[in-house]
Simulated assay, not measured.
Amino acid sequence: MLPLTKEQEASLGLELATKRQEHSDLNAAIDTLTQSQVADRMLLQRLKKRKLALKDRIVQLENILLPDIIA
C-alpha cells in the first residue's frame, strides 16, 4: 500500500473522528430508546445495524491510519 499524503491522512483522520462521534451518539440513542417503554423495535434494529456499519468503517480507518508494524 502506498504511503498516504498529508491531505489524505488529514481527511481520513477527520472521517474517523466523525464516525467515532456518530457511533457514540447512536450508542446513546439506542440506550435511551431501550430504557423507554415505547421503544420501536424496528427503529432499534435499524440503529443497531447502522452502529455496526459505523464500527466496521472505524476499524477500516484505524487500520489504514495505524497499520500494524511487523517487526
Rank of each mutant, 00 (worst) to 15 (best):
M1G: 10
P3H: 09
P3V: 04
L4T: 05
T5D: 03
T5H: 04
T5F: 02
K6F: 00
E7K: 03
E7P: 01
Q8E: 15
E9R: 15
E9T: 12
A10M: 03
A10Q: 07
A10C: 04
A10S: 06
S11K: 14
S11C: 02
L12R: 08
L14A: 09
E15I: 06
L16A: 04
L16D: 06
L16K: 11
A17G: 12
A17Q: 15
T18P: 02
K19M: 00
R20A: 03
Q21C: 00
Q21H: 13
E22T: 07
E22Y: 09
H23E: 10
H23L: 11
H23N: 14
S24P: 10
S24H: 14
S24R: 13
L26C: 01
N27Q: 06
N27C: 01
N27R: 11
A28D: 12
A28E: 11
A29P: 02
A29D: 15
A29Q: 15
I30C: 12
I30R: 05
D31S: 08
D31Q: 13
D31H: 13
L33C: 06
L33T: 03
L33P: 02
L33V: 03
T34F: 06
Q35C: 01
Q35S: 10
Q35F: 12
S36Q: 13
Q37H: 09
V38K: 15
A39D: 07
A39L: 08
A39F: 03
A39N: 12
A39R: 14
D40Q: 09
M42P: 06
M42G: 14
L43S: 11
L44E: 07
Q45V: 05
Q45M: 12
L47N: 08
L47H: 05
L47Y: 08
K48F: 01
K48C: 02
K49N: 10
R50W: 00
R50K: 15
K51H: 15
K51T: 08
L52V: 14
A53D: 15
A53G: 15
A53K: 15
L54K: 02
K55I: 04
K55C: 02
K55L: 04
K55Y: 12
D56C: 01
D56G: 09
R57I: 01
R57S: 05
I58G: 07
V59L: 09
V59M: 04
Q60S: 11
Q60M: 08
L61H: 10
E62S: 01
E62P: 03
E62T: 04
N63R: 13
I64P: 08
L66Q: 12
L66T: 11
L66R: 13
L66D: 11
P67W: 05
D68C: 00
D68V: 12
I69G: 02
I69A: 02
I69M: 08
I70Y: 13
A71E: 12
A71Y: 09
A71P: 05
